[in-house]
């Protein structure tokens, strides 16, 4: 295994007082990887994403993105290096239209922020790209509507579209289907299937249907510690995983 890893985590640890939320977590994502992170509620999955993205500071451990340490970088700096996340609970600009939400992200990616002159053309281009990305997500009809008026499923798609518009190299999807009514989940699944193959993706998900369909490798987290890892088949056969997570009935 001499190839560069897209993301490499070694010995990541974090505690809040007496509560240990991450213990010596190791994780590797190869370029183009599709890894699922599962675990019971409170296992530390979202905390792990927060540690990776810099919203939380780890007590110990190393995180490398394509061989470069992310030590001490703020969340926005990590985003600019290609480590992008989506959120379990939507974090959108509710008063803006879907297109504006995307265009603002695109303008940020292209670093147009400090342009005070002749920004009109750049902004138009950002809006065009935003429109195109909405069409790719098959949500173009939502472009001119305020986000707060959109169905939840479309808001979830917008979360993913925004993350993709930042041209990530490593993408962390925090429960992309969370809260989506069952008749809309298929749309999310299709969007996940369409994600570019070259991006390394870590997906956190409770829905085992999504996990088994999407992931080539599964990592099981329990009480802030990696309990097991392996292929979907191996994980679903692992008695320890069944005991803590999958319950007694086989999947």
């Amino acid at each position: 295994m001499s190839t560069t890893r897209a993301l490499s985590v070694r010995g990541l640890a974090k505690r809040f007082g007496a509560l240990v939320v991450a213990q010596e977590i190791d994780l590797d994502l190869a370029p183009g990887a599709r890894v699922a992170l599962i675990g019971p509620n409170g296992a530390g999955k979202t905390t792990f994403v927060n540690l990776l993205t810099g919203f939380l500071e780890p007590d110990r451990g190393r995180i490398e993105l394509w061989g470069q340490s992310l030590q001490g970088l703020r969340p926005e700096q990590r985003v600019r290096r290609g480590l992008v996340r989506t959120h379990q609970i939507n974090q959108l600009l509710a008063d803006n239209t879907a297109r504006d939400n995307l265009a603002i992200a695109i303008a940020e990616r292209d670093r147009h922020a400090w342009r005070l002159f002749r920004f009109g053309r750049q902004w138009d281009r950002c809006c065009e790209e935003a429109q195109q990305r909405l069409e790719e997500m098959e949500t173009a009809a939502a472009a001119d509507r305020r986000v707060s008026e959109l169905p939840y499923g479309e808001q979830r798609l917008l979360e993913i579209a925004i993350a993709l518009s930042l041209r990530p190299r490593v993408l962390l999807l925090d429960e992309p289907a969370a809260g989506v009514p069952s008749h809309e989940t298929e749309v999310i699944h299709q969007a996940l299937d369409r994600l570019p193959a070259d991006i390394a993706i870590l997906i956190i998900e409770h829905d085992m249907g999504v996990v088994f369909r999407f992931a080539h490798e599964i990592v099981v987290l329990a009480q802030g510690r990696v309990l097991a890892r392996g292929s979907p088949a191996a994980i679903s056969a692992d008695p320890r995983v069944r005991a803590v997570y999958l319950g007694k009935s086989p999947v």
Binding site: V79, L92, L93, A94, I104, R109, Q122
Partner: peptide, 23 residues
């Protein structure tokens, strides 16, 4: 300007703005 639009975003949701790379 894009700067002004990013301020509008920060007012609504600073977390979102950091997640798209806004300082």
């Amino acid at each position: 300007s894009p700067f002004g639009r990013s301020l509008d975003g920060i007012r609504q949701n600073p977390h979102r703005m950091r997640a798209i790379g806004t300082p």
